[in-house]
């Protein structure tokens, strides 16, 4: 048997398999139960580099203060973050599905525009209005999109649903009477594996009548 590695000229080696091991390590001091892993070096506002910071986030109209690393994503804060007062933020509606900004499971609104929370650094969300799926209903009164999703059965397993609901709400806030094609464009950043799309389209149309 010829040596496959040499024969095909690949460049896989044990060294490469371990690439990254030991690189760029920063001495980590871990504060349990918060998201940071390194000491704060400086303040973000001054133009100096910070490895971590305490940031203020406005989520669904409520202020939160949370310690984050520079690499902490907005999604991580929403789901796993702990306010400096010690309470879990626990907004688990937004999901991590693809982890690469391809599927829309983590869609939230930042200053009224949809973004992928898995691809946004938490520090970048400071000072902005963040709206998650949990912030759409007015108490017990569902947002028209939410109500229409239930009535049309625009969900099955429901794991993608929060992302679709947020994208649909954002779409209707910009375009109250979208055509089917515009609905498809507006929701093209969200993926459903159960295949609920036809009823999602119906639900958005129904909701648009109430906007």
């Amino acid at each position: 048997m010829p040596d496959k590695e040499k024969k095909q000229g690949t460049n896989i080696s044990r060294r490469n398999f371990l690439k990254g091991v030991g690189t760029g390590t920063v001495a980590a001091t871990v504060a349990p139960s918060v998201l940071i892993g390194a000491e704060k070096e400086a303040d973000a506002q001054t133009g100096d580099a910070v490895a971590s910071a305490t940031i203020q986030l406005n989520i669904n109209g409520k202020p939160y203060q949370v310690e984050v690393e520079a690499r902490t994503t907005l999604l991580t804060v929403l789901r796993d973050g702990i306010d400096t007062s010690g309470t879990n933020i626990d907004l688990t509606g937004a999901k991590l599905i693809c982890d690469r900004g391809e599927c829309g499971g983590c869609t939230v609104m930042v200053d009224g525009k949809t973004v992928y929370a898995c691809m946004m650094l938490a520090m970048d969300a400071e000072g902005k209005q963040i709206t998650t799926v949990e912030g759409l209903a007015d108490g017990d009164n569902l947002h028209p999109v939410q109500d229409a999703f239930v009535q049309h059965d625009a969900l099955m397993c429901g794991f993608c649903t929060p992302g679709f609901v947020v994208s649909s709400a954002a779409l209707l806030s910009e375009n109250t009477k979208p055509t089917l094609e515009e609905i498809k464009v507006g929701l093209s950043g969200n993926t459903c594996r159960c295949g609920t799309y036809p009823f999602i389209f119906d639900a958005v149309k129904t909701a648009s009548k109430k906007m």
Binding site: A44, G47, E69, R71
Partner: peptide, 15 residues
């Protein structure tokens, strides 16, 4: 992601 530090740019010259 590995850890990194973050700088909010204040001017092109600084960058």
């Amino acid at each position: 992601m590995e850890k990194f530090s973050y700088v909010n740019a204040t001017s092109v010259e600084q960058v």
